[in-house]
Structure formats: C-alpha cells, structure tokens
Design a protein around this nucleic acid. Sequence first.
DNA 1: TTTGACTGTTTACATCTGTAATCAATGAAA
DNA 2: TTTCATTGATTACAGATGTAAACAGTCAAA
Lengths: 122, 122
Amino acid sequence: MTERISDAEHAVMEVLWKRAPLTATEVADQVVQQKDWSLQTVKTLLSRLAAKAVVGTERDGRRFLYSPLVERDAYLTGVSRNFVDRLFGGKVMPLVAHLAEADELSADDIREIEELLRELKR
Amino acid sequence: MTERISDAEHAVMEVLWKRAPLTATEVADQVVQQKDWSLQTVKTLLSRLAAKAVVGTERDGRRFLYSPLVERDAYLTGVSRNFVDRLFGGKVMPLVAHLAEADELSADDIREIEELLRELKR
DNA sequence: TTTGACTGTTTACATCTGTAATCAATGAAA
DNA sequence: TTTCATTGATTACAGATGTAAACAGTCAAA
C-alpha cells in the first residue's frame, strides 16, 4: 500500500531516482529543465513527499539531503498494476492488444516484446 | 486532446459504454452494483461529464437520456498512451518487461500475448 | 556585529475530486 | 386541485493537487 504520488511529485521523484541524495536546490535545478516551476514549488513537493515518507531526509549542516525511500521499480509495479486493473480488467493482454490495434506498436516493438517473452520462458 | 475523466467519472462511463442511452436512474442502478454511491452522486458525475461534453444529453420528456460522446477505444488509447509516455518513456516494451519481472504475467498471459503478436505480424 | 544569501517551514489559494444535500420544476396520483 | 415522487440544477464541503509567497533561522561575508 504505497502512498500515492501525484503527477507533480512524480517529476521530482524521477530526479531523485536518477541520483540521490540531493539538496532541494539540486533537485530543482534538474526539475526546472523539464517543468517551469519555481524553487519554492519544488521545495513544497519535496516536503509533501517527505511527509508521506516517500523520500527521506538527512541533515547536512544547514540543509537537507533528500533520497527516495520508495524504489522506482516498486512504484512502477504498483501503478502499472493499478492501471491495468482499472482499465483492462487486470489483464495485460487486452492492453497490449489495444495498443497494437491503435497502431501504437511498431514492428520493432513487436519484435522486442517477442524476444522478451522468449527469454521469459527460459 | 480528450477531456480528462476522473476515476469516479470513469465508473459512470463504463456503464454508458456498455449500453446507451440511459437515464440517470438507470445509470445509477448499474453503478451502485459496483460502487456504494447515492443517486445524487451519480447525477453529479453525469452533469460534470455532460459539462465536459464527454457524454451527450437528449431530452426525453421530463428527464434526460445520456450517451457517451467519447468512444471507449479512443479513451483507452489516450490514457494508455499517456501512461506509457509518462512512466515508461513512451515504450511499451519496458512496461511489459516490468510487469513480467514483477511476476505479474502468468505463463498463460505470456502465451496469449505471443499468440496475439503472431496474429499482428500477419 | 550587522547584513545578506540560503534553506526549510508555514500559510495561501484556486481548481479538481469525491460525495452528497437541498432546491425547484413538474408530471402523476389521490 | 392538492400532494407526492421524480428529475435536473444549484450549492456544499472536505481533501488532494498545482503552484507558489511570506516567514524564520542561520552560516558567511563584510
């Protein structure tokens, strides 16, 4: 039962998942390359994430260092599961079928997935 | 650029995608089997959906008949695309790989997907 | 030691969501 | 014709979210 991470919070997490620990300013520097947010906004998001225990803080003199407490993998598993459950009745096949029919899968994608599945069976 | 449909609204849409047009009461009767909502709540959701032009209304005497204006398929394509873009860099492979690694795919699932992909190549 | 730059904390505020209650119009029943 | 039930419209209200501004503590420079 991982705490829910909002869209905005997710952008912050992606930065921390790439490298951590980081200070608020360092996180903001990264985030700003994607989103047009102020330093204050990023700090608010970090606070909320810390309040939810999704990131941990470690005092470093006058400032904090932030690190993810939730692994990206675990998070992705949770949201993927939720997504597939809600929209495709919990089955991955209809999702893949849907993307395929909507022409969202290239021939390369298909080859890659087939390769992956072959691996899985071994 | 389809209007965003919230979770609660989505439950209402599923009913209308199954059969339409329906009156508010008919929709509520269906929805209540899933969610423990009052008739009022369902009506509010229908109004919001109508305001967003996601469902259309057609007067029928004293009441309205509601029908989806957005197709389920188009909606699913949109949210799937968005989901895959946001969390898996737009590639489906990592999503499937992820679900597979998280043991969310059974042997049957794998067989089904392989079958599907085989079809697609023909 | 005063001042300024940084950093976290507190407060703000509009919008969206979930979940209705209340109101008003009206057709049906008594 | 008065009354009740049905139905859409309006209003409500708390919590989540996006997006900060204002405040307060403190180390560093002057």
